[in-house]
Amino acid sequence: MAPVELPVEKWTGKIKEVKLGGNGRKSMVIGGETTLPFLKFEGVLPNKPVIAVEVQDAPPKDWPQALVSAYGDALKDPGEWAKKALSFGAEIIYLRLKSAHPEEGNTGAAEAKKAVAKVLEAVDVPVIVIGPEVPEKDNEVLVAASEVGKGQRLALGNCVEKNHRTIAATCIADGHVAIAKTPIEINLAKQLNILLCDVGLAADSIIMDPTTGSLGYGLEYTYSVMERLRIAGLMGDGMPSMPMLCDVGEESWRQKESRVTTGVPETWGDPAERAINWEIITAISLLNSGANIITLRHPKTIEFLKNSIAQLTQAG
């Protein structure tokens, strides 16, 4: 009998390659794939998805015990925290300047510079800096972060429609990448990329954050929007063909299933095991729908997902 003819799609597009790091810092490229996630029989995946581990500029007040005990005293200092994250397997540090939030301390440019400098000093992997997600404050602290990391090709976010001009300008000036975040909607994602390119940011300096819904909390919306973005990109539309980042750590660890240890149905199972499963299942689902960077928090999750990515991307 004739061999089965493999059903290969002829994609005309390609996901853009975005470089992070460099200039003394380790560098890496993400994106570049010519097929849907991990379909080796069909196309090439020149750069594997990477794991970013979250570091905050101040000890987190709302982290569950499972995470606090994993990081221990390192949580007191962003530099130490970054080193710990690296020892767990982080390929990128995702630094959240949480204390710049008006409710979390309202710190400003000076403190932001200090925190970013500490992390840049402590580790040599690429760094993503995320503001408190209040557009005015984001502008203040991200511009400060941008200056400190000038030339080291950080990624700065979140860049939303409201502040895209400021973030784009600082990325252009200091050679950084913007994290363009939109609320689980394909056209808005595309639109923000167009706006960023219109103000002069190069298309290879944008990473999309389509907004992450964790398992049980909107995962399916993120999953499908990402599949649609990826398909649109592969079909040749340049504007949604940027690599994607999913903030899995934050989203899965703030849900009740990952935090609450008592007073929930017995059918939810062991809290420690459940929390890890919540994070790994959210992560693998979003990798399969096209994530190029996933943020993670728990060391066990980092280890398992790193192995999974290796399995999915090994040659042959």
Partner: peptide
């Protein structure tokens, strides 16, 4: 759990697991 989760999205009809614990089945 990771492989089972992938197969729920891509494209299994029957998934046989070796472990049964609520902490695994509830998320799956």
């Amino acid at each position: 759990a990771i492989l089972a989760a992938q197969q729920i999205g891509k494209y299994a009809g029957i998934i046989v697991l070796d472990h049964f614990t609520p902490a695994l089945f509830y998320p799956l």
